[in-house]
């Protein structure tokens, strides 16, 4: 046994290394190992508990609301987010311009709804890349064990202790043109370690189970075993991990954008705050410029976390009692 595992369980769950995610958001070690009850009944039961879980429903409603706004609201606008002189300069919210204007007469509402789009995009892409890397590393390390595990564990630990935002700053600062996709890629490549760690631990305990032994004896290939036998048995856990990675990616991206290392074209919620600060919104009392973007991020990420707690209670019967 390596000394890394010497301590007690590292919290009940993952610690997203991003822009301020909880050290112990809601993925407990027990969740994925739920009994393999008949699939149909279990599905029905899950739906039953899911619909009655206030946290899950409330979180989902908030996330869906912002998602729909981000998807459709930009289409209904006659002007783009960065067009000047849509209204008077620095106007407070009004009936025509719901969130007022910037110092340059840009429509804050238009920036906000476009910013929502890039927030979801970064979450999806950045969280997706981190999820993919975390899964591959976690599955392989947990399933193969031995020196492969040692090496992957070492890499994971190295990336884990690197301060993510600092690395991203260095990388982004040298990029001439930055898009959401590139930003997401780099965020994903730096924020996977905790996911890999917890997936590794889950895989490790699953791969000693009878049904995996059976699959191994029947000569199935490692990848088939991982994706047909192991992954489905921890699907709820994987889903919750992805949600946390999504939220983490959104927060990191907002931080980068705020420093001024965001996408060089288009807009984002972090960029809005960056411009608000750069152009003195604080001193001028133009709260409508910097309050909505932060509020949007907080609402989306907070709703995701609360949703995760709800999901955890649905998937993990032990938690339902309280």
């Amino acid at each position: 046994m390596s000394t890394e595992q010497a301590g007690p369980p590292t919290g009940a769950g993952p610690a997203p290394g991003g822009g301020g995610a909880p050290p112990d958001a809601a993925v407990p070690a027990g969740a994925p190992l739920a009994a393999a009850a008949p699939a149909g009944r279990r599905g029905g039961e899950l739906a039953y508990f899911a619909l009655r879980n206030g946290k899950l429903v409330a979180g989902l409603v908030i996330v869906l609301f912002f998602l729909l706004v981000g998807l459709f609201a930009p289409m209904l606008l006659p002007h783009g987010p960065n067009e000047y002189d849509i209204g008077p300069q620095g106007a407070p919210p009004s009936a025509e311009l719901w969130l007022g204007t910037t110092r340059f007469g840009q429509d804050v509402y238009a920036q906000f709804v476009h910013g929502l789009r890039s927030t979801f995009l970064v979450g999806l892409l950045g969280g997706g890349v981190a999820f993919a890397v975390g899964m591959v590393v976690g599955f392989v390390a947990g399933y193969r064990g031995g020196w492969v595990d040692e090496v992957l564990n070492m890499i994971t630990n190295v990336v884990l202790v690197l301060p993510t935002l600092a690395v991203l700053i260095i990388v982004a600062a040298y990029l001439q043109a930055r898009g959401v996709a590139v930003q997401s890629l780099f965020i994903g490549l730096t924020s996977w370690p905790w996911a890999a760690r917890s997936i590794r631990a889950q895989t490790f305990s699953l791969s000693s189970r009878d049904f995996v032994d059976l699959a191994r004896l029947s000569g199935r290939s490692s990848w088939k075993i991982i994706f047909r036998d192991i992954a489905p048995n921890m699907s709820s856990y994987l889903f919750m991990t992805f949600i946390l990675l999504f939220g983490g990616a959104v927060l990191i991206a907002a931080g980068l954008d705020f420093i001024g290392l965001g996408p060089t074209d288009g807009t984002s919620l972090g960029l809005m705050m960056n411009q608000a600060v750069n152009w003195g919104a604080l001193q001028l009392g133009m709260w409508w410029w910097f309050v909505p973007p932060g509020l949007g991020i907080t609402a989306i990420v907070g709703a995701l976390y609360v949703m995760n707690v709800g999901l955890d209670e649905v998937f993990n019967p032990k938690l339902r009692e309280t």
Binding site: A21, A25, G255, M273, W287, F290, G294, A299, L304, V306
Partner: peptide, 26 residues
């Protein structure tokens, strides 16, 4: 629990902006 989740979901700079604006400027 809810307050905790909202706080952890808050971007650092946004809370800083709110405090600077509310307690500082206003």
């Amino acid at each position: 629990l809810p307050v905790g989740y909202v706080l952890t979901a808050t971007p650092y700079m946004w809370l800083a902006l709110l405090l600077a604006w509310g307690l500082g400027i206003v």
